[in-house]
Design a protein around this nucleic acid. Structure first.
Length: 288
DNA sequence: ATGGCTGTTATCCG
DNA sequence: CCGGATAACAGCCA
């Protein structure tokens, strides 16, 4: 998916556009991403709601809605997740509904679209996924000590552990590789054997990787018509400007197998861990 | 063209 | 419990 930075950037774009708008004619075209909600019930629950606030937790977007007065002034919280291929954007009402649209609704003169080719994303009132999330990477609770304590008893590779959102949330396959490179840690290192010194490098490495990606994403001029192809990483329609730097250019290791390390010229390696690609520099990330 | 790859995560087994 | 494997899905690329 879109990892934390992409979701944060999406939030910053959507928040000023969506907050205060009223949902009309919600239409659900794919049942899977809204489960366990039932299409008809969710659609009728959304009808007429005012979008009070949009926020982010981990890789989730949170829609806090106010139900219309005639249905009694209640509130409704919806969780959105982009999965691997989700996009959310606003488009003019006269633009056709795109292929792979999961759901759409009118929002005061425009149309909000959640599109998701692979349908791994979510848009649901089921909040249970928030339950086991670890701290945000910038939370005061996310300290080297905390990290070391949590990793202590695990023999699993650090790369794999860091994909577990209950340790610290927001990392995905790309930024975990980048963060491990930046902290000089071999991705195969058993989590429990990380030293305090390594944890002290890892925490800021994670924070800085994510922070820089947010900064980059927020600086890009983006269109939201949903018609653009890809803009490297950031998951919303672009207006065809296609100015963004191609992804591999921005990364130290991710997707750079066979290319020279930018720091030491060693050949970047690709291995498979937990059925996912891991990229690392065999020289800069030696086991200690 | 067939198979392997893809930014995620829930669930099912041993 | 822990951890590995698989499934959910469509498209792209070699």
């Amino acid at each position: 998916m879109p990892e934390l930075p992409e979701v944060e950037v999406l939030l910053r774009h959507l928040k000023p556009q969506l907050e205060g708008r009223v949902i009309g004619s919600p239409c659900i075209l794919q049942a899977r991403p809204i489960r366990p909600d039932v299409p008809r019930s969710l659609a009728s629950a959304l009808q007429g709601c005012r979008i009070n606030t949009l926020s982010r937790r981990s890789k989730f977007l949170i829609f806090d809605l106010a139900t219309p007065p005639e249905r009694g002034r209640g509130s409704l919280r919806i969780l959105g997740h982009l999965g691997m291929t989700g996009r959310m954007f606003l488009q003019p009402l006269d633009v056709p509904i795109p292929k792979h649209t999961v759901l759409h609704f009118s929002a005061t003169g425009e149309r909000f679209v959640f599109q998701d080719v692979r349908r791994f994303g979510r848009f649901t009132s089921d909040l249970s996924s928030l339950q086991d999330l670890g701290p945000e990477p910038w939370d005061a609770a996310f300290t080297p000590r905390y990290l070391r304590d949590l990793l202590q008893k695990s023999k699993q590779a650090i790369k794999v552990r860091l994909l577990d959102q209950s340790i610290v949330c927001g990392l995905g396959n790309i930024y975990v590789a980048e963060a491990l490179f930046r902290s000089g840690i071999d991705p195969r290192t058993a989590a429990g054997s990380l030293t305090q010194a390594q944890c002290e490098r890892l925490v800021p490495a994670i924070q800085n990787c994510l922070q820089e990606a947010v900064k980059l994403g927020a600086s890009l001029a983006l269109g939201f018509d949903g018609t653009g192809s890809r803009d490297g990483l950031f998951y919303y329609g672009s207006d065809g400007e296609e100015e963004a730097t191609p992804a591999p250019e921005r990364f130290q290791v991710y997707d750079r197998a066979g290319s020279p390390c930018r720091q030491c010229n060693s050949v970047i390696q690709r291995i498979v861990q937990a059925a996912r690609s891991t990229f690392y520099c065999p020289h800069c990330q030696r086991r200690r």
